[in-house]
Design a protein around this nucleic acid. Structure first.
Lengths: 198, 198, 198, 198
DNA sequence: AATGAATGAGACTTCATTCAT
DNA sequence: TATGAATGAAGTCTCATTCAT
C-alpha cells in the first residue's frame, strides 16, 4: 500500500535508527530493549516493526552505520592518489574519527567496540563488517606501498604486512582512548612517526 | 558432604568457570544463560549460586580471566631487564597469545573482544580491566625506552607515545585475526620491524 | 539413638526456637528463611532438621509460644477466685503483657498479630490457637459473671456477651499500640472503667 | 487494541484485583503466587505486569481495599452529626461489616487480619493503614464525646480513652468471629450496652 | 499505515529439604 | 548425631513480537 512516499519511509527508518543509536550509546547493545527504542523514537511498537523485521535487524543496521561511518572517514582520506606519510594519514584519520564521534547522539567508537564483540561471534554483523575491514586493509596496504615507493620503507619491507600493522593501529587507539583516556591523535601519530623515522 | 576442603571449593569454582567459558565461547557473552551454564557445568542451579552470587559475577570472572591471561602473557615476556627489539617482543607476545588461545575450551581472544565491549560501558568489568591495561602500557613504554637507549629510536622520540602505539598493536592483531584471518605473529612482527628499520 | 539426654534435646530445641523468634521479630513470619534460622541458631541445617520436621513446624511452635505466653499471662491473673473489677483485671493483664513483650528477643505481640493472620486461614496454627482463645473467653465470661454478682452489672446483662466484649478488648489494644502507639494499659483500663461506671 | 479508554484500563485493574482478592481469600497473603493471580484473572503474565509493577503492589492494593472498605463502613455511619448510643453505632458498624464481608469474592475481614500482620512490620502497608486507623479513632472519640454530652458517661470520663476502647472493640470482634465463631453484632452490641448501662 | 495492549516463553534467582560423609 | 554442599522445583518478572482495531 504505497500511500506513503519512499521519502517518508526513509525518514521514519532514520528516526528509528537515530533513536536506537542514542539508546545503544547510553545503555549498550544488549541492555537496549525494544521498549527503549520505541519510547525514544516516539513511535509505536507496530510502527517500528513496520520498518524493521526484528530487533536484531535494527542492531545490525546500527553496527553497520557505526562501522560504516569509520569506513567512510578512511575512504575520504585515503582515496586520493597522493603519497602522504603514513603518520599524517593516521593523524588525519584519527582526527576525523574523533570529530565525527563527538558529534551526533552518542560516541561512535563506543558502539563500534560493541559491534566488534558481536562480529567476532559470526552471524550477520560479522558478514557485514568483514568486507569493510578488508577494504580498509587494502587502503592501508596502498598507503604502505606508496610510502615504500617514496623511499620511506626499505626495499625488503612487505607492504602487505606493514598495511596490516597500520590498520591494526586504529582499534588500539579507540580502545585506549575509551578505557584509559590520555591518548590523542597527535601523540599517536607522533609515536608512529618516531617509529618510521628511526 | 560436610567440611569440604578449600581445594574442593576451588575445584568447583573452576568447574563452573570452565563451563561458562565454553558457553561464552560458543554463544557469546549475552546469549549465555544461567541454564546453559548450569547444564554445561553438570551442577544444579543451587550449587552454582552457592559459588557465585549472580550471573554478572560469573561473567565478570570470565572477563577477568580472559584479560588476566593476556595480561600474564605480557608480564612473563616483558618483565625481564633486557632490551630486546620491540618487534621481537611483539612476536613473542603474539606467539604466546595464540598458543594459550588455542588450548583450553574456547578462544581466549574471542572472549576478550566481548569483554572490551562490556568494559567501555563502564561498570565492574571496566574497573577490573583498566588497571591491567594501564600496567601493560607501562611495560610497553619501558620497551620503547630501552629501545631508544639502545639507539633504535631517535633522541626526539617520546617513549610514552611509542609505548602507546606498541600497546595498541595488540587489539589490532586480535581483531584482524578473528575477523579476517590471514594475519600471523611472524608477519605482524615483520611489519613492525620494517617500520622500525626504515 | 538416645546417646544424648532428653535435657540436651530440649536445650537444642530451645536454642532453635529462640533463634527463630529473633528472626521472626526482625523479618516477619514469611520473610524468615531456614537459612536465617540456621545462621541465627549457630547450628547446621541437618541439626535443625533433626529437631523439627519442617519450617512450618518451627513456625507453628513459635506461634504457639507467642499465643501461649499471652495465654499464660491471663491464666495467672484470672485464675484466682476473687471478684476484681474488670478494669483492674484488664489493666493487670495489659501491664503483664507489655512487661513480657518488652523482655526477650523481640516483641511478643508483633509475632502474635502475625500468628492471627495465619490462624484465620485454618490449618495447624488455627487448631492450636482456637482452644486457647476459647479458654480465655471462658475466663473473661467468669470475670463478667463475678462482676455481675458483685452488683457491677445489671441483672439483665448476659455475662457471656460481656465476656466476649472484654476478651475482644485485648486484640484492639495490641493492634492500636503497634500501629498508632499512644495507648497505655492505664488509659485503656480507665476507658473501660468509665464505661462500666456510667 | 489501540487507544483503549481509561474505563477499559480501570476494568482490567479491577479484574486483576478481584482475581487476587479471591486468591488471597483462598490461599492467604503469602501463599498467593503470581501464577495464581495470572491464572485466576484469565490474563497473561505480561498483561498483569502492565497494570501493576510488582506482586507487592498488587498485595498492597488488596490490603488497601480491604482496610479501605472497613474504613468506608465506619465513615458512612459515624459521619452524621447525631449522638446515638455507642452500642447502636457499634451494632450498625458490625452489621454493615458482615454485610459487606459476605458479598464479593471472599471474606473481607479475613484479608484485613492478614493486612494487620503485614502492617505491624512497617513498610508500605503500614504507612497506608496508619492514617486510616487514626481517622477511625477520631470518629470513635467523637462518638464517646457526644455520648458524654448526652449524659451517658460521667463527667470525669476521658472521651479520648473511651474512644480508643470503642475502636479496639472492632478487631476483637473480627478475630473472635473468624477464630471461634459464635459472635454476632447483636450480641456484641448487647454486651457493650450492658457495660454502659451498669 | 498506525496503534499499543496483550502474549507467553524464558530469564534469573531463592530456598526448603536431603543425604553422603 | 552432626555437617553443609547439593538439589531442583518453584517463584517473580522481562521483553521481543503480534494482531485486532
Amino acid at each position: 500500500m504505497p500511500k506513503v512516499t519512499e521519502e517518508h519511509r526513509n525518514a521514519r527508518r532514520e528516526q528509528i535508527l537515530r533513536a536506537t543509536w542514542r539508546c545503544v550509546a547510553r545503555e549498550g547493545f544488549h541492555k537496549t530493549t525494544m521498549a527503549d527504542v520505541i519510547d525514544e523514537s516516539g513511535l509505536s511498537a507496530g510502527a517500528v516493526y513496520g520498518y524493521f523485521r526484528s530487533k536484531d535487524q535494527i542492531l545490525t543496521a546500527i553496527a553497520d552505520r557505526s562501522v560504516g561511518t569509520v569506513d567512510q572517514v578512511f575512504h575520504d582520506l585515503l582515496a586520493d592518489g597522493r603519497a602522504p606519510h603514513p603518520a599524517d594519514v593516521l593523524q588525519a584519520v584519527l582526527d576525523r574519527l574523533l570529530d565525527v564521534a563527538g558529534q551526533g547522539d552518542g560516541d561512535l567508537t563506543l558502539i563500534a567496540v560493541q559491534a566488534w564483540g558481536e562480529a567476532v561471534r559470526g552471524g550477520e554483523i560479522h558478514d557485514m563488517i568483514q568486507p569493510r575491514i578488508a577494504g580498509l586493509r587494502d587502503h592501508w596496504v596502498e598507503v604502505a606501498r606508496r610510502h615504500q615507493t617514496a623511499g620511506g620503507l626499505g626495499p625488503d619491507a612487505d607492504p602487505e604486512q606493514v598495511g596490516r600493522v597500520l590498520l591494526g593501529l586504529i582499534p588500539g587507539f579507540i580502545l585506549q582512548r575509551l578505557l584509559l583516556g590520555e591518548v590523542t591523535p597527535d601523540g599517536y601519530a607522533a609515536g608512529v612517526r618516531a617509529m618510521l623515522e628511526a
